[in-house]
Design a binder for these strands. Structure first.
Length: 668
DNA sequence: AACATCACG
DNA sequence: ACGTACGTGATGTTT
């Protein structure tokens, strides 16, 4: 019986993870030609997370979900709305969810509010719906509802939970409500419990953890070209859908709360991820000023260069073709021009660079790609992201997109703005303070991951060098090239050492290192051996980590965030090696992410407590960007450095570089 | 939807 | 013979 339940559960979860219909049979999996190893990995993850104890039973049995018929409250009069607001008790969970007209919280209109205080209950406060003929609460339904709900939403003694509550908080903030008492987020909790999963959408969580199939949003708004917005949905339909969301969230909150405590993750969850939310909400709300005219004029310049390059390339190729098509390019390079294939039919940068000695086309292609990327990924799209009302760009800061605990940014991604070439770096001139009263301050950790690795590995040589304030790449150069006292470390030696330092942290082998350095693999192998000879603690850390992950099937950061890694005992060496590299890197990358998260929390609190005008605007993994008011520069600069340095005490000093300027270009 | 490529830390 | 360094997101092509 238990086995059969588990089989059903496992099959259901697989259907979610692989996006096949919920009522799929094994035959459907076969038709989809699902990678067997991928399936295996998913099962192993399920096993690991405790959702699945055993795999067995009748795999072809239909998947059953719990049937629940619920009556949810539809609030349609002023009296009932007031009663509802008055009934919310301090100290008891309130799940909050908005129905809106857009996935973008900086433009979304509120269609309705839903709440739940207890499993199997929920209430919906409608604002807009199809065929609405009269106001329900007063002259302006939205304003009246906000006025009545505000004391509840802004009461920090009423603990709030939600699914991606940052989204709802941002919208409320736009409508003058400062959501307080945010204590839980089911999306963040689900991610912390299982950070390798692909999706943390509420309907998936409900199916996985509650065995309950929610009403699909498509049933209400359709999909594709005929999709409508939530304000065009019938009141009867929207009520169940909306209240169900809040209901499922409150039920999941209980479950996740227990699970976090059981896994000893609750303190991390609350003190890092939840406490970070106010900082992220404010960063996203405040946005970043982007100089539209500058980008427009740069785009024009690049566009002209691009046209010229295109003509040159077509000329040289001797035929028209789509330069952006790697397939067509491969035909020209490898079939027509008979250039040697370095790696299958790849035309990636590393390959084209090697082909430049045979023909002048590859180098032109690379130039074209650089400029094309610059124009189509940065110069042209960035202005499109400027919010018409705020005149700023409100990039999304995502807490649940990485397996290591880093943040990510999207729409637009502000964590990959160019810096490595001058052409690209100039994009940063457009990312600036909005007025002369403010400046951009950039503060970045100096080699933070290397310092974290020193701490985690307790490598004596590395720790001592960092304590002595040595230039760490020069120090490594001395070690791997056996530079004697008084002898000079040549610039090229330092360059190589820098690449080696990074390569080691990622678990690079001699092949990759030789590629990066442009040297024979045998030489790269010697360098790696020399490195581990000098840094014995690091060698030991890697040996220990591999043993640990084989035993525990997971690794963790300094503060206890975990990541399941289940291929460390794979028969397949490629997969096993990959798993070991992940296991080695995650504690390093993840701990560095924790440092900057703590710093952000402290900096945001400091700015607020002191009523400063300066604001955090961006995080780029080891760098923080602030828009600082001219009157506050001295205080903010010292304060930011202080909090960054003191975020987590390591066995080595933590250094922070800091700079100031009218734009990110000058500040970095 | 998957793949290839390339931008960042 | 094969594959070969961690973590992301956006874009364009191909299916």
């Amino acid at each position: 019986m238990a086995d059969k339940d588990n089989a059903l559960l496992s099959k259901k979860l697989v259907t979610i993870l692989l996006d096949v219909p919920v009522d799929a049979s094994i035959a459907d999996f076969e038709r989809k030609e699902v990678d067997k190893t991928k399936l295996e990995s998913i099962f192993k993850e399920l096993e690991f997370t405790g959702l699945l104890k055993k795999i067995g039973g009748d795999a072809d049995a239909p998947i059953k979900t719990t049937e629940r018929k619920k009556e949810y409250d539809l609030i349609t009069t002023l009296k009932r709305l007031e009663e509802f607001a008055g009934s919310i008790k301090e100290g008891e969970w309130l799940s909050v969810d908005l129905e809106t007209t857009s996935v973008n919280p900086m433009v979304a209109e509120i269609v309705g509010f839903s709440f739940s205080v207890k499993k199997d209950t929920g209430a919906y406060v409608p604002i807009h719906y199809k065929d609405k003929v009269e106001n329900l609460f007063g002259d302006n339904d939205l304003q009246v509802a906000i006025d009545i709900l505000k004391p509840v939403l802004e009461n920090e003694k009423i603990p709030k939970t939600g699914q991606n509550i940052k989204y709802d908080a941002l919208i409320m903030k736009r409508f003058g409500v400062d959501l307080k008492g945010i204590e839980f987020d089911t999306m963040i909790a689900a991610h912390l419990i299982s950070p390798n999963a692909r999706s943390y959408k509420l309907d998936n969580l409900s199916l996985s953890y509650l065995n309950y199939k929610m009403v699909p949003i498509q049933d209400l708004i359709g999909s594709g070209r005929n999709q409508i917005t939530m304000d065009q949905v019938d009141l009867a339909d929207i009520t169940f859908y909306a209240a169900e969301d809040a209901d499922v969230v409150i039920e999941l909150t209980e479950i996740f709360l227990e699970e976090l405590k059981k896994q000893n993750l609750y303190t991390y969850f609350k003190e890092i991820e939840i406490d970070l939310l106010p900082a992220l909400i404010d960063m996203q709300f405040h946005g970043i000023f982007v100089d539209r005219n500058y980008l427009l004029s740069r785009s024009k310049e690049i566009g002209i260069k691009l046209d010229a390059l295109e003509k040159q390339i077509i000329d040289l190729a001797g035929q028209e073709f789509n330069i952006n098509s790697t397939q067509q390019l491969a035909e020209i390079l490898f079939d027509k021009l008979n250039l040697p294939m370095v790696k299958k039919r790849s035309t990636a940068e590393a390959v084209l660079k090697k082909l430049k000695e045979y023909h002048e086309l590859p180098i032109l292609i690379l130039q074209y790609r650089k400029l094309f990327k610059l124009k189509n990924t940065y110069l042209d799209p960035l202005p499109d992201n400027i919010n018409e009302i705020t005149n700023r760009v409100h990039s999304s800061f995502n807490q649940t997109m990485t397996a290591t605990g880093r943040l990510s940014t999207s729409s637009p991604n502000f964590q990959n703005i160019p810096i490595r070439t001058e052409d690209g770096k100039e994009v940063r001139k457009a990312i600036r303070a909005q007025s002369d009263e403010y400046q951009i301050l950039s503060a970045d950790y100096s080699q933070v991951e290397l310092r974290v690795m020193a701490h985690l590995s307790k490598d004596e040589a590395l720790i001592q060098a960092l304590k002595d304030g040595e230039d760490i790449h020069t120090f490594t150069a001395k070690n791997i090239f056996n530079v004697k006292e008084g002898q000079e470390v040549l610039p090229d030696m330092r360059r190589i050492a820098k690449i080696v330092n990074f390569g080691i942290m990622y678990g690079a082998g001699s092949f990759r290192l030789s590629q990066e350095l442009g040297i024979p693999a045998a030489e790269a192998k010697k360098i790696i051996e020399a490195y581990f000879e000098k840094y014995k603690g690091i060698k030991q850390y890697m040996v220990d980590t591999k043993l640990l992950v084989r035993k525990e099937k997971s690794v963790s950061t300094l503060l206890g965030r975990t990541r399941a890694v289940w291929d460390s005992d794979s028969q397949n060496q490629v997969r096993r090696d990959a798993a070991e590299r992940m296991a080695i890197n995650m504690p390093i990358q993840g701990t560095a992410a924790e440092m900057i998260k703590i710093a952000m929390i402290k900096i945001d609190n400091d700015l607020k407590e002191n009523n400063l005008k300066s604001k955090l605007i961006l995080q780029i993994h080891d760098e923080l960007l602030l828009e600082v008011h001219n009157d506050e520069i001295d205080y903010v600069k010292d304060m930011v450095i202080k909090h960054m340095k003191n975020a987590i005490e390591l066995d080595v000093p933590v250094e922070v570089d800091c700079d100031l300027g009218p734009s990110w270009y000058e500040a970095h």
